[in-house]
Design a binder for these strands. Sequence first.
RNA 1: AGGCAAGUAGCUCAGUGGUAGAGCGUCCGUCUGAUACGCGGAGGGUCAAAAGUUCAAUUCUUUUUUUGCCUACCA
Length: 1133
Amino acid sequence: MAKYPEYKTLDLPSREKEILQFWEEQHIFEESISSRDGKPPFTFYEGPPSANGLPGIHHVMSRAIKDIFCRYKTLKGFQVKRKGGWDTHGLPIEIAVEKTLGIRKEDIGKKISVEDYNKECRREVMKYKEAWEDLTRKMGYWVDLEHPYITYENKYIETCWWLLKQFYEKELLYKGYTIQPYSPAAGTGLSSHELNMPGAYRNIKDTSVVAQFKIVLNDDAKRILNVVPKEEVYLLAWTTTPWTLPSNSALAVGKDITYIKVDTFNPYTHDRVAVVLAEAVKEKYFPEKYSSIPFEEYEQGIVKNVPYKITDHILGKNLKGLKYEQLLPYVQPQGKAFEVIIGDFVSTEDGTGIVHIAPTFGADDFRAAKQSGIAPILVRDENGNDVPLVDKTGRFVKEVTDFAGEFVREEYLTHEEKEAERKKQGGDKYLSVDERIAIKLKKENKAFKVEKYEHSYPHCWRTDKPILYYPLDSWFIRTTAKKERLVELNKNINWKPESTGTGRFGNWLENLVDWNLSRSRFWGIPLPVWRTEDTKEEKCIGSIEELKSEIQKSISAGFMDTSHLEHIDAMRDDFDLHRPYVDNIILVSPAGKKMVREKDLIDVWFDSGSMPYAQFHFPFENKEAFQKSFPADFIAEGVDQTRGWFFTLHAIAGMLFDSIAFKNVVSNGLVLDKEGNKMSKRLGNAADPFETIEKYGADATRWYMLTNSQPWDNLKFNEEGIKEGQRKFFSTLYNTYAFFALYANIDGFTYKEKEVPLAQRPEIDRWILSELNSLIRFADENYNDYEPTKVARAIQDFVSDHLSNWYVRLCRRRFWKGDYTEDKISAYQTLYTCLETVALLMSPVAPFYAERIFKDLNNATGKIKWKSVHIADFPQYNSKYVDKNLEERMELAQKISSMVLSLRKKANIRVRQPLQKILLPATDNDFVNNVTAMKELILAEVNVKELEFIPDDSDILVKKIKPNFRVLGKKAGNKMKEITSLIGTFSQKEIAQLEQKQKLDVQVSGEAIMLLPEDIEITYDHIPGREVASDGRVTVALETTITEKLHEEGIAREFVNRVQNIRKDKGFEVTDHISVVVKKHPRLTPSVLANKVYICAEILAASLSFTDNISESDSVPVELDDDISTLIKISKA
RNA sequence: AGGCAAGUAGCUCAGUGGUAGAGCGUCCGUCUGAUACGCGGAGGGUCAAAAGUUCAAUUCUUUUUUUGCCUACCA
């Protein structure tokens, strides 16, 4: 006959290894998909990890979340395909390779060929593939790693090219420039990563200038600034980089900042001027103490301090549109310029509250100017390209006549160069460009203040020289053109938590800038754009086929030879769409000119954002498969991906397909160490996922991570928490199963009997089934709502509080006492159903142990046709089983039992000692009915013989009254405080009156208010002369008198307990019958004899006798009470 | 600097416009033929701070503050 396996210990890690073997041998994962053939699909996209680093514990977290919902949806009957993937490009890989080879970026192409370098990258990126696969397996994450998509494969790249061409054709892909950190000395742009290296930011002293920009006094200006005759008005703006002043083309103010117009003198030229600056910075330039100096005294040279007078206040937004004269007119702009604009970044922290805007040399400047339609200052170089006033070596162009060919920062000059310059200048000391600009401005009444200013400024880590912010060519996706649509589409995405979608992601979309795709690296997807040298003609290639035909043309034009053609085949090993191969391809333009590829690679985020299409090699293959699985139903990654993968998926889908890419997204928080610090290998506080799983098991780890905090909250990872979950949940569940298995095996229960109808099951069974069905419903709703934490916590509470510590505890005897009756079968069926259902409900979160229990149960009964819990169907909620009233009644019974036990404790009477009676005030009919229904259960639980109600109007009850704030508050309003204190003074008589008449008139602040029963809450305070326990509306008193008869029963119970212990110690089977011989004892013998039938039934005794002579060697000494000791001898009957 | 989130008992977390809870830990006690991986009890809180709205705020609003993440790094 089929048996339920019994285990010596829980040992989760061992159980998991067995299950893992079972899954693999039986191909359960594959079957969980194939068994759903023809069912509706549920689409999941796997965000590809990069295998060039070892997986961490946080990966267990994010992958557990992915796994949970895929498993859940499978149980719900969906077909959930999940293709794994690998992210293979990107800077971290290149840097790792550079480190391994001991080279730098500039060595690539010199010390090592691009071809060999990329070979290294290709190897590097899969360095830890095995470790990743191992973790995936061990943690129980089901994803298809047999057929993953890999971003470096030709097919994958081809789809990306196709996508880029779609952008290109919609005129959403263009070449432009942005302001980026640039090192003129090294001749290269710097990544933000390089700028964040320690030591990159250093303090340097710069010449700072507050420049005077002369306002053009047209009618508007006169009106806005209240200009008086002969007044000349200047805007004051501060800069620490005077060399950018020739490139100034706008001034920015804050729209809500208040500005003042000040009548004063220029401290260098002593000219009378009116200057505008933020009121908040006035003290810095115009100390209060100078305000009283008469202007004449300064003019006459009597005082040196500059006097001033505030003549007007203007709000920033009113300054918008004012025109001013160009400060240093070397080069004229092509378009609107020299206007006051609004900048959201303007502050009054330093400077003047007016910001000098040089669109070619500042990121904020560039953006603000673009928004306001302000033109940058550019010159045309010999190639006919527009370039800024400073060239790529860091020198002024010739158009800046006074400083033509000079380095803008003195740090770029060598010692010798400086010396030569000094001689040319004719001074004692070399004067930098900044200093000479300052001098020039001073002379021309254009500088208001010049001083040295020390600040932190980024430096190039290679050359140690300060960087410049410089416009560099880049390819962009014009995301701003589709901004509104992307915002709109985002509203159809269900974000967990919602705030990430509306806040972090929503704000990001609102403030979208064009997506800079360019990366000047080697290992990545090459930008498929070819251009003629004069940039007049260009071509974007969208497929290998197209590339082939273009090469054909190029061969015809004589730019390439035919040998190139034979390689062009995605299936060939020697064909590769990476650099350097694509760089060697020269195409021909329609006009017959040579075209070479733009050197850039594309942002790796484009790779991963393309995965919905590229994983299927769409549109070249699998069109149908793609269409069926787009958009995804569900994705999940860390919240740090908001601007990464989440965005690129959204941008590509929204801009090219006018669709969202995913319907539901869970963004989980970080995993921190137990102190709340970020985990890092350097600090040595990073938890090793392999060790953790080996030690505690994947289930306990997963369970802990999901029950401890919501996925989107940060998790303070603490091994103690895993242990707690093991104890509280897994051990309890294991014990419950072990209990079931022990007795079911003895009784041969295999669920062969007909289902005992609900109505014929005892109340306790109906209760746990009601709780179980409530749990099914709750779990289903919350899984469906992507709330795994709520589900797992609810399952845990059910198992530990309801199932183990109440149902099983109360039902123990039903399992091991008596014959195989309907009641016993009902108990088995009920407990079996609970265990089986719990296994199903928990299986998404704890897939291993759920499988163990499911198999152990199902192998014995064959009740469910599926061989795995993960292929079975989600439990069906049945409202017929739910009886909320019963659930409440049981809660009441638990409460009363607990209160009686606490009274026993107070009186120091152990539970084995039976007591006569408990007394309960009869609050109302419902209460009486509910308690009466639970009477037997309560009495058995607390070992008391009777339960009696005290009539509510009985004199012995003392009542307590307090307002029902919720109800009375609405009625009484601002008299609440008074009423509360009035009610507090009520006597027993007044309470009784209120109860009898169902109302009570009271006076509050001279106003009559009628108190009704619903306005107040009456509870029982105490019962004079008795120990009582109160909890909310329930009060219990316990009769603690122990009669002789009760005492004897107590002794009998103690006796049973001792014998049971001896049985257990001796290793008897629970079914063994025994003979018992006891040494006579005057206090014990009568008690035992009086309860002999009961005792013999409990301990399965065939005989029970007393004797005077018993040898100590084959008997056991026991102590039954403080003054009762004896010897007991038991043997198998 | 901006955005988002969090701040409740020693720890981990629930919760609510009506006078604050659980688990763990601590201390005391105790049961058990599934279970010391249990059970009962005690102690422990200005619900981060302040102001406002309200009869009533831990809860709503504003400000401040601490922590974490993301973005930016600037005249």
